[in-house]
Design a protein around this nucleic acid. Structure first.
Lengths: 220, 220
DNA sequence: CCGGCTATCAACACCGTGTCGAGAATCTCG
DNA sequence: CGAGATTCTCGACACGGTGTTGATAGCCGG
């Protein structure tokens, strides 16, 4: 299964045609300001006024481009998850060629993508608690990844590389949830965390143990 | 290692002597109101006025008992984690007697405790993003559990029941993080989740695979 | 050159938080 | 008992952030 986006689109929020208009420039400026401020301040500590001023407009004008502060973050999240999807695309289709290397590649790419946008990732994790749209978007993204993982585990089982055991879906949920939480703790430095240099290998180790049960998986 | 609380105390917030005073009654009323309202509304949607009215006092009077809305939740969280600590206490000291049963018992007790107070648990998870005190308290609690897990894994390795591999601390962090996230998703019904009836066994399965690597652990 | 779309902002209404200062109720001890 | 401290209470206020309204300015096509 290849990761494919379900046209979550959400393109330009207001009724302007996409392309080269003065308003398009402003919209980008707001998004850039948000990502910039997020590097030094928590999302809750950034006001709409900060975003507007950073983009060189007044607060009411902000509302011409986005319906709320949360919508800005949602757009940012959408971009990042799109990037992560692209980075992960196809990796799992070739798991059998060299299982440990492929699984590692998958985990590493997620780590790299979210590491490159950690300000956005951290802000989304923080806001997910209070904002239903962010929560739902993230849930949908995670669901896609869970399904990919599930399909790959089942494929490994079919070719006899992985033993049966837990339902593939339950296992896929547990492993992806672990990755989310561990990666977040590492990137945000929040709570007990694994060192950033080790985190990919630690996660990989648990994935392989849970999927293959100690038996070294044979390449196809 | 037995779980022991580090006297996080935080007892009565204002300068009253603990015991049977009219103010003590009010304080309990506020806490009870918070836990009750949390069952039907998100924490962010509950105002200090709601809490005050629920406890039969005015908003300014609320501030006599708690410095903020978040402080109420913090007190609630402190209670629940205390309960979880008590439930988990000692279980890991006897892992070797019957490893699968003991590890399962540990996971099940956490599940039961947080399941019994899911409104508080869910609210804390949501607020952790924006409130440093809740985040820090939770981080400290998790750190204790990680250390217990770590010690138990090392003990299993010393007696030859578990093979060497990942540093015990890294493994303990990964597994506890997985539990936190998966349990939260299940209790809150947020995102891809394992059915509540299965969640303990799913988590246990990954723990055993990661710790013992497919080799059935011998009892002492 | 006019009607409609894009874009802008000052001013306003609203809501929740937290503080202040003035009290009432209760307790303590000479 | 009653004077002084302490516990407890709330009306009224100041503040800061959100989202809306209505008026206005540029711009582009017909």
């Amino acid at each position: 299964m290849t990761i494919a986006r379900a046209a979550a689109g959400s393109g330009t929020p207001r009724g302007r045609r996409p392309g080269r208009s003065p308003g398009d420039h402003r919209e980008r400026a707001i998004l850039a300001t948000a990502e910039r401020l997020l590097r030094h301040r928590a999302f809750a500590d950034i006001s709409i006024d900060d975003l507007a001023r950073g983009a060189g407009i007044s607060r009411p004008t902000f509302y011409f481009y986005f319906p709320s502060k949360d919508a800005v973050l949602l757009t940012l999240l959408d971009r990042v998850t799109e990037e992560a999807d692209a980075a992960a695309a196809g990796v799992l289709d070739r798991v059998a060629e060299d299982p440990p290397a492929r699984w590692r590649e998958l985990i590493r790419r997620f780590h790299d993508t979210f590491g490159a946008h950690r300000a956005v990732a951290v802000a989304c994790a923080q806001v997910r608690g209070t904002n239903a749209e962010v929560r739902d978007l993230w849930a949908a993204v995670l669901e896609r990844w869970v399904r990919c993982t599930e399909a790959a585990i089942e494929a490994e089982r079919r070719r006899g590389a992985a033993p049966d055991g837990l339902p593939a879906r339950a296992l896929a949920i547990a492993l992806n949830s672990m990755n989310e939480r561990v990666l977040y703790a590492t990137l945000a430095g929040d709570g007990p965390a694994v060192a950033e240099a080790d985190v990919v290998d630690v996660l990989l180790d648990v994935w392989l143990a849970a999927i293959y049960r100690g038996a070294a998986p044979p390449p196809a």
